[in-house]
Design a binder for these strands. Sequence first.
DNA 1: ATTAAACATTGTTGTAAATCAACTTTTTTT
DNA 2: AAAAAAAGTTGATTTACAACAATGTTTAAT
Lengths: 229, 229
Amino acid sequence: MKLTKKITCNNCTDPCDFQSALAKTGRSIDDANIFHAHFKKHDVICKQGKEVTHALFLTKGWAKLYLEGLNNRNIILYILKPPAYIGLLSFFETPIYAYSVTALEDSEVCFVELGLVKKLYIESHDLLLCLNKVFGKSVADIMNKIISINQKQIRGRIAENLIYLSNLHQSHKFHLCLTRKEIGEMAAISEENTVRLLSEFAKESIISVKGRDIEILDMPLLKKICDVG
Amino acid sequence: MKLTKKITCNNCTDPCDFQSALAKTGRSIDDANIFHAHFKKHDVICKQGKEVTHALFLTKGWAKLYLEGLNNRNIILYILKPPAYIGLLSFFETPIYAYSVTALEDSEVCFVELGLVKKLYIESHDLLLCLNKVFGKSVADIMNKIISINQKQIRGRIAENLIYLSNLHQSHKFHLCLTRKEIGEMAAISEENTVRLLSEFAKESIISVKGRDIEILDMPLLKKICDVG
DNA sequence: ATTAAACATTGTTGTAAATCAACTTTTTTT
DNA sequence: AAAAAAAGTTGATTTACAACAATGTTTAAT
């Protein structure tokens, strides 16, 4: 992490809900003491178990949000893509992070002091409702993940995550920002089986795989595999 | 579900945070149109996929909160014990329930219109902070559950849930309000293996089991089994 | 009191998926 | 350019657990 002065709220291309909240409550952005930082690929943005001191907002670069489980095994809950609230599930009165977030590529993050956030959502209902909305979506996604991980077989889980990645890229053809191991961590399966299934899907002409370039050739079939579990 | 006039906010023994919020915003409880209902054992209190119309507050009787998964397999996320917000994870701007709740015994539930809730937490920061706090705790619990279900073996999972139930009853000796199948659904394991493990633990003198009466005899060992996974 | 239904138990079997192991390819470092 | 580290691949082996089956026991209904 490296502080940067280049990016400020004033030249922000993706203004977050904090900005309008600041405006509405008659505060100046400069007084708000918001600072901006650059994270390099693989840098940890926030760490499970550590204290929550700021609300974090991702403005550039993708990141993975994951649980650090037993025996150094991670489960990736979802991929964050800007603009995104990073600490959302944790900054509502939770003292410590319930998960970790790591940059998948060079990223930019804004830091808003938690004290200010609290003041803001006491004074601005709109901000609160916005955040709660995103929050609710996250919870629903996690519930779905629990079922998926626990009740689908690895074939269905990999299919599900390929579809997820495709939606994220908004294209059937995309370049993976994840290693095979990380794809495995999304579906909570071993790296070996991830590789095996990707080749299997390729052999069946459901997808095409060239290194990290993936193309989904038969989306209906992939969806079917996902749905039957 | 059966409406009841016997229980009202005015004679409530466990006043919820809505009451103080109502008072603070100068509203009368009678105008608030809060109604109270009785649920019999096994009644569904709220149903996954159905619209969220009210905030629900459990004042009497225990209930289970669970996900309805594939092939009629449920996963119980936690047990609700009064006083408890039932719909907490869903009434923050989520239109539909992400889970179901069913009464484990005869229960009483208060219904507060969602419109009023929204007004209340716009006008009363305290209410909001209270709810968010409970909310954060729930999320942390769910994260832990994901790891547990996915990375622990069934022995560790059953141990974990026995400890959980013991804490809930605030005693090492308690009467199960759940069937073996439901104990299994808490740990996401089959009914058969649940039975097997309970007998196994009993044979090892870690617990004593007589029907639904459980006593934890060796809590340190049980904790160890839980921790090693 | 009798029957049905729900709940509990135990042994056996099949299999999905992790683990192990050995190896190749790609990327990064010096 | 060479060495080292990380990432990717494939087959063989092991195992944890669900599913099946058969049977006993308690609870609820008529």
